[in-house]
Amino acid sequence: MDSKLMSLEEAISSYVQNGDLIGIGGLSFWRKPICACREIIRQEKKDLSICTFVGGIDVDMLVGGGCVSEIRASFVGMEVFGMAPHYRKGVESGEIRISEESEASIALGLKCSYLKVPFMPLKGIIGTDFPKVRDDIKQFEDPLGSGTQLMAMPKIDLDVAIVHVNDADEFGNGNIEGAVWLDDDMAKTAKKTIIISEKLVETEDIIRLPRRAQIPMQTTAAVVKVPFGAHPTSCFPNYTFDPIHIQTYLKTDFEEYKRKYILNKTHSQYLEEVGGVQTILNVLL
Protein backbone atom coordinates (compact mmCIF):
# COMPACT_ATOMS: atom_id res chain seq x y z
CA MET A 1 0.00 0.00 0.00
CA ASP A 2 1.32 3.44 -0.90
CA SER A 3 1.85 6.08 1.69
CA LYS A 4 -0.16 9.29 1.19
CA LEU A 5 2.04 11.28 3.50
CA MET A 6 3.18 14.61 2.05
CA SER A 7 3.95 18.19 2.98
CA LEU A 8 1.17 20.74 3.42
CA GLU A 9 2.55 22.68 0.47
CA GLU A 10 2.45 19.62 -1.77
CA ALA A 11 -1.05 18.60 -0.63
CA ILE A 12 -2.57 22.01 -1.34
CA SER A 13 -0.74 22.53 -4.63
CA SER A 14 -1.60 19.01 -5.85
CA TYR A 15 -5.24 18.86 -4.85
CA VAL A 16 -6.67 22.39 -4.63
CA GLN A 17 -7.39 24.06 -7.98
CA ASN A 18 -8.66 27.58 -8.59
CA GLY A 19 -12.46 27.54 -8.81
CA ASP A 20 -12.91 24.39 -6.71
CA LEU A 21 -15.73 23.81 -4.22
CA ILE A 22 -13.85 23.14 -0.98
CA GLY A 23 -15.42 21.57 2.09
CA ILE A 24 -13.84 22.63 5.37
CA GLY A 25 -14.37 20.47 8.43
CA GLY A 26 -14.77 21.52 12.04
CA LEU A 27 -17.25 24.01 13.45
CA SER A 28 -16.88 27.63 14.44
CA PHE A 29 -13.69 27.82 16.56
CA TRP A 30 -13.30 24.09 16.87
CA ARG A 31 -11.01 21.75 14.98
CA LYS A 32 -10.63 23.85 11.84
CA PRO A 33 -7.75 23.12 9.43
CA ILE A 34 -6.38 26.66 9.75
CA CYS A 35 -2.83 25.73 8.68
CA ALA A 36 -4.34 24.66 5.36
CA CYS A 37 -6.19 27.99 5.08
CA ARG A 38 -2.87 29.81 5.55
CA GLU A 39 -1.27 27.59 2.88
CA ILE A 40 -4.13 28.30 0.45
CA ILE A 41 -3.53 32.03 1.01
CA ARG A 42 0.23 31.58 0.49
CA GLN A 43 -0.39 29.76 -2.78
CA GLU A 44 -2.78 32.54 -3.87
CA LYS A 45 -5.60 30.20 -4.84
CA LYS A 46 -8.48 32.09 -6.42
CA ASP A 47 -12.20 31.88 -7.00
CA LEU A 48 -12.82 29.13 -4.44
CA SER A 49 -16.29 28.22 -3.21
CA ILE A 50 -16.08 27.40 0.46
CA CYS A 51 -18.59 25.07 2.09
CA THR A 52 -18.57 24.59 5.84
CA PHE A 53 -21.22 23.79 8.44
CA VAL A 54 -20.42 26.76 10.69
CA GLY A 55 -17.59 29.06 9.66
CA GLY A 56 -15.42 31.41 11.68
CA ILE A 57 -11.83 32.52 11.32
CA ASP A 58 -11.30 29.90 8.57
CA VAL A 59 -13.80 31.50 6.20
CA ASP A 60 -12.91 35.03 7.26
CA MET A 61 -9.20 34.49 6.62
CA LEU A 62 -9.76 32.99 3.17
CA VAL A 63 -12.02 35.90 2.24
CA GLY A 64 -9.44 38.36 3.58
CA GLY A 65 -6.78 36.59 1.53
CA GLY A 66 -8.78 37.13 -1.67
CA CYS A 67 -9.15 33.39 -2.33
CA VAL A 68 -12.94 33.17 -2.25
CA SER A 69 -15.78 33.94 -4.64
CA GLU A 70 -18.62 32.09 -2.89
CA ILE A 71 -19.54 30.96 0.63
CA ARG A 72 -21.92 28.16 1.55
CA ALA A 73 -22.28 28.04 5.36
CA SER A 74 -25.17 28.13 7.80
CA PHE A 75 -23.34 30.71 9.92
CA VAL A 76 -20.10 32.67 9.69
CA GLY A 77 -19.12 34.59 12.80
CA MET A 78 -16.53 35.01 15.51
CA GLU A 79 -18.86 33.88 18.32
CA VAL A 80 -18.56 35.96 21.49
CA PHE A 81 -15.70 37.86 19.85
CA GLY A 82 -18.09 39.45 17.35
CA MET A 83 -18.73 39.41 13.62
CA ALA A 84 -16.34 38.03 11.02
CA PRO A 85 -15.00 41.30 9.57
CA HIS A 86 -13.71 40.28 6.12
CA TYR A 87 -16.64 38.00 5.48
CA ARG A 88 -19.05 40.77 6.40
CA LYS A 89 -17.24 43.34 4.27
CA GLY A 90 -17.02 40.93 1.36
CA VAL A 91 -20.76 40.26 1.39
CA GLU A 92 -21.80 43.86 2.01
CA SER A 93 -19.59 45.13 -0.84
CA GLY A 94 -20.80 42.40 -3.19
CA GLU A 95 -17.29 41.00 -3.65
CA ILE A 96 -18.32 37.53 -2.61
CA ARG A 97 -21.51 35.61 -3.32
CA ILE A 98 -23.49 33.71 -0.76
CA SER A 99 -25.50 30.60 -1.19
CA GLU A 100 -27.82 31.05 1.81
CA GLU A 101 -27.68 27.81 3.79
CA SER A 102 -29.27 26.30 6.86
CA GLU A 103 -27.87 23.35 8.81
CA ALA A 104 -30.10 20.82 7.07
CA SER A 105 -29.41 22.22 3.59
CA ILE A 106 -25.73 21.31 3.97
CA ALA A 107 -26.33 18.03 5.79
CA LEU A 108 -28.84 16.95 3.10
CA GLY A 109 -26.70 18.25 0.22
CA LEU A 110 -23.91 15.90 1.33
CA LYS A 111 -26.37 13.00 1.75
CA CYS A 112 -27.41 13.57 -1.89
CA SER A 113 -23.80 13.20 -2.87
CA TYR A 114 -23.58 9.76 -1.22
CA LEU A 115 -26.79 8.67 -2.96
CA LYS A 116 -26.06 10.34 -6.31
CA VAL A 117 -29.53 11.92 -6.32
CA PRO A 118 -30.02 15.52 -7.47
CA PHE A 119 -31.98 16.56 -4.40
CA MET A 120 -33.36 15.44 -1.06
CA PRO A 121 -36.74 16.50 0.32
CA LEU A 122 -36.84 18.65 3.44
CA LYS A 123 -39.90 19.53 5.45
CA GLY A 124 -38.23 22.64 6.73
CA ILE A 125 -37.23 26.02 5.25
CA ILE A 126 -40.90 26.27 4.13
CA GLY A 127 -42.23 29.68 5.14
CA THR A 128 -38.81 31.36 5.14
CA ASP A 129 -37.48 33.72 2.47
CA PHE A 130 -34.86 31.18 1.35
CA PRO A 131 -36.68 30.40 -1.94
CA LYS A 132 -36.45 34.11 -2.85
CA VAL A 133 -32.66 34.02 -2.78
CA ARG A 134 -31.99 30.42 -3.80
CA ASP A 135 -33.17 29.64 -7.33
CA ASP A 136 -31.83 26.10 -6.94
CA ILE A 137 -34.35 25.06 -4.28
CA LYS A 138 -38.03 24.43 -4.92
CA GLN A 139 -41.18 23.68 -2.94
CA PHE A 140 -43.19 20.73 -4.27
CA GLU A 141 -46.00 18.39 -3.26
CA ASP A 142 -45.32 14.78 -2.30
CA PRO A 143 -45.50 12.86 -5.61
CA LEU A 144 -46.74 9.80 -3.69
CA GLY A 145 -49.95 11.58 -2.82
CA SER A 146 -49.86 12.38 0.90
CA GLY A 147 -50.38 16.05 0.09
CA THR A 148 -47.31 17.05 2.14
CA GLN A 149 -45.48 20.17 1.01
CA LEU A 150 -41.73 19.65 0.73
CA MET A 151 -38.64 21.59 -0.21
CA ALA A 152 -36.17 20.10 -2.69
CA MET A 153 -32.61 20.75 -1.48
CA PRO A 154 -29.85 20.22 -4.06
CA LYS A 155 -26.79 18.01 -4.00
CA ILE A 156 -23.47 19.36 -2.76
CA ASP A 157 -20.59 17.68 -4.59
CA LEU A 158 -17.32 18.80 -3.05
CA ASP A 159 -14.20 18.88 -5.18
CA VAL A 160 -11.98 18.81 -2.11
CA ALA A 161 -12.52 18.20 1.61
CA ILE A 162 -9.95 19.45 4.12
CA VAL A 163 -10.34 18.13 7.66
CA HIS A 164 -8.21 18.32 10.78
CA VAL A 165 -7.97 15.17 12.91
CA ASN A 166 -6.25 13.98 16.07
CA ASP A 167 -4.71 10.81 14.68
CA ALA A 168 -4.09 9.45 11.20
CA ASP A 169 -2.00 6.72 9.64
CA GLU A 170 0.01 7.34 6.49
CA PHE A 171 -2.60 5.54 4.36
CA GLY A 172 -5.34 8.01 5.20
CA ASN A 173 -7.33 6.51 8.05
CA GLY A 174 -8.31 9.39 10.31
CA ASN A 175 -9.58 9.35 13.87
CA ILE A 176 -11.40 12.25 15.51
CA GLU A 177 -11.61 12.09 19.29
CA GLY A 178 -14.17 14.80 19.92
CA ALA A 179 -17.17 15.87 17.86
CA VAL A 180 -17.13 14.84 14.20
CA TRP A 181 -19.61 17.44 12.85
CA LEU A 182 -19.82 17.00 9.05
CA ASP A 183 -16.18 16.02 8.62
CA ASP A 184 -16.85 12.38 7.81
CA ASP A 185 -19.58 13.21 5.28
CA MET A 186 -17.29 15.74 3.63
CA ALA A 187 -14.28 13.43 3.62
CA LYS A 188 -16.22 10.49 2.22
CA THR A 189 -18.07 12.37 -0.53
CA ALA A 190 -15.40 14.80 -1.80
CA LYS A 191 -13.47 13.91 -4.95
CA LYS A 192 -10.21 14.52 -3.08
CA THR A 193 -9.73 14.55 0.67
CA ILE A 194 -6.83 16.10 2.54
CA ILE A 195 -6.36 15.06 6.17
CA ILE A 196 -4.28 17.25 8.44
CA SER A 197 -3.33 15.33 11.57
CA GLU A 198 -1.93 16.30 14.94
CA LYS A 199 -0.21 12.97 15.18
CA LEU A 200 0.90 10.22 12.83
CA VAL A 201 0.22 6.71 14.09
CA GLU A 202 0.39 3.13 12.86
CA THR A 203 -2.78 1.57 11.41
CA GLU A 204 -2.64 -0.77 14.38
CA ASP A 205 -3.06 2.23 16.70
CA ILE A 206 -6.15 3.43 14.81
CA ILE A 207 -7.74 0.02 15.20
CA ARG A 208 -7.23 0.22 18.96
CA LEU A 209 -8.79 3.67 19.33
CA PRO A 210 -12.30 3.67 20.84
CA ARG A 211 -14.06 5.10 17.83
CA ARG A 212 -11.55 3.82 15.23
CA ALA A 213 -11.44 5.65 11.88
CA GLN A 214 -14.39 7.90 11.12
CA ILE A 215 -12.51 8.75 7.94
CA PRO A 216 -11.62 5.65 5.90
CA MET A 217 -8.40 5.55 3.92
CA GLN A 218 -10.00 4.70 0.58
CA THR A 219 -11.40 8.23 0.21
CA THR A 220 -8.26 10.02 1.40
CA ALA A 221 -5.85 11.55 -1.12
CA ALA A 222 -3.28 13.15 1.17
CA VAL A 223 -2.15 12.95 4.79
CA VAL A 224 -0.24 15.85 6.32
CA LYS A 225 1.20 15.96 9.81
CA VAL A 226 0.91 19.39 11.45
CA PRO A 227 0.88 19.47 15.27
CA PHE A 228 -1.09 22.53 16.46
CA GLY A 229 -2.27 22.86 12.87
CA ALA A 230 -5.75 23.90 14.00
CA HIS A 231 -4.42 26.89 15.97
CA PRO A 232 -5.98 29.39 16.76
CA THR A 233 -9.00 27.04 16.77
CA SER A 234 -9.18 24.04 19.07
CA CYS A 235 -8.39 20.38 18.66
CA PHE A 236 -10.06 18.50 21.51
CA PRO A 237 -8.71 16.88 23.66
CA ASN A 238 -5.25 18.24 22.81
CA TYR A 239 -5.86 21.98 23.06
CA THR A 240 -8.59 24.61 23.18
CA PHE A 241 -8.90 27.68 20.98
CA ASP A 242 -6.55 30.63 21.51
CA PRO A 243 -8.68 33.60 22.55
CA ILE A 244 -5.71 35.96 22.61
CA HIS A 245 -4.73 35.24 19.01
CA ILE A 246 -8.35 35.53 17.88
CA GLN A 247 -8.44 38.99 19.48
CA THR A 248 -5.15 39.84 17.76
CA TYR A 249 -6.60 38.70 14.44
CA LEU A 250 -9.61 40.96 14.89
CA LYS A 251 -7.46 43.97 15.80
CA THR A 252 -4.89 43.58 13.02
CA ASP A 253 -5.19 44.90 9.48
CA PHE A 254 -5.27 41.85 7.21
CA GLU A 255 -2.25 42.82 5.09
CA GLU A 256 -0.21 43.20 8.24
CA TYR A 257 -1.61 39.93 9.61
CA LYS A 258 -0.64 38.20 6.39
CA ARG A 259 2.93 39.51 6.54
CA LYS A 260 3.37 38.62 10.17
CA TYR A 261 1.69 35.21 10.37
CA ILE A 262 1.18 33.77 6.89
CA LEU A 263 3.61 34.73 4.11
CA ASN A 264 7.01 33.03 4.08
CA LYS A 265 6.39 31.42 7.46
CA THR A 266 7.15 27.84 8.29
CA HIS A 267 4.83 26.25 10.82
CA SER A 268 7.36 26.58 13.62
CA GLN A 269 7.96 30.25 12.72
CA TYR A 270 4.20 30.76 12.86
CA LEU A 271 4.00 29.17 16.31
CA GLU A 272 6.82 31.44 17.48
CA GLU A 273 5.03 34.52 16.10
CA VAL A 274 1.75 33.69 17.86
CA GLY A 275 3.46 33.51 21.22
CA GLY A 276 5.59 30.37 21.22
CA VAL A 277 5.79 28.19 24.30
CA GLN A 278 3.55 30.44 26.41
CA THR A 279 0.75 30.22 23.83
CA ILE A 280 1.09 26.46 23.66
CA LEU A 281 0.88 26.22 27.45
CA ASN A 282 -2.15 28.53 27.39
CA VAL A 283 -4.17 26.37 25.05
CA LEU A 284 -3.12 22.87 26.15
CA LEU A 285 -5.98 21.12 27.92
Binding site: F75, M83, Y87, E100, S102
Partner: peptide, 21 residues
Amino acid sequence: EWKNPKIRFPGCAGIADFSMF
Protein backbone atom coordinates in the same frame (compact mmCIF):
# COMPACT_ATOMS: atom_id res chain seq x y z
CA GLU B 1 -31.93 44.00 0.88
CA TRP B 2 -30.40 40.53 0.82
CA LYS B 3 -28.55 41.21 -2.43
CA ASN B 4 -27.12 44.47 -1.23
CA PRO B 5 -27.25 44.37 2.57
CA LYS B 6 -26.51 47.30 4.86
CA ILE B 7 -25.44 44.78 7.50
CA ARG B 8 -24.73 41.13 6.90
CA PHE B 9 -25.25 39.05 10.05
CA PRO B 10 -23.50 35.72 10.65
CA GLY B 11 -26.55 33.76 9.44
CA CYS B 12 -29.41 31.76 10.89
CA ALA B 13 -27.69 28.37 11.37
CA GLY B 14 -30.46 25.90 12.15
CA ILE B 15 -33.26 28.38 12.79
CA ALA B 16 -34.58 28.01 9.22
CA ASP B 17 -34.81 24.26 9.77
CA PHE B 18 -36.06 24.02 13.31
CA SER B 19 -38.30 27.04 13.97
CA MET B 20 -41.36 25.49 12.30
CA PHE B 21 -40.96 22.02 13.77
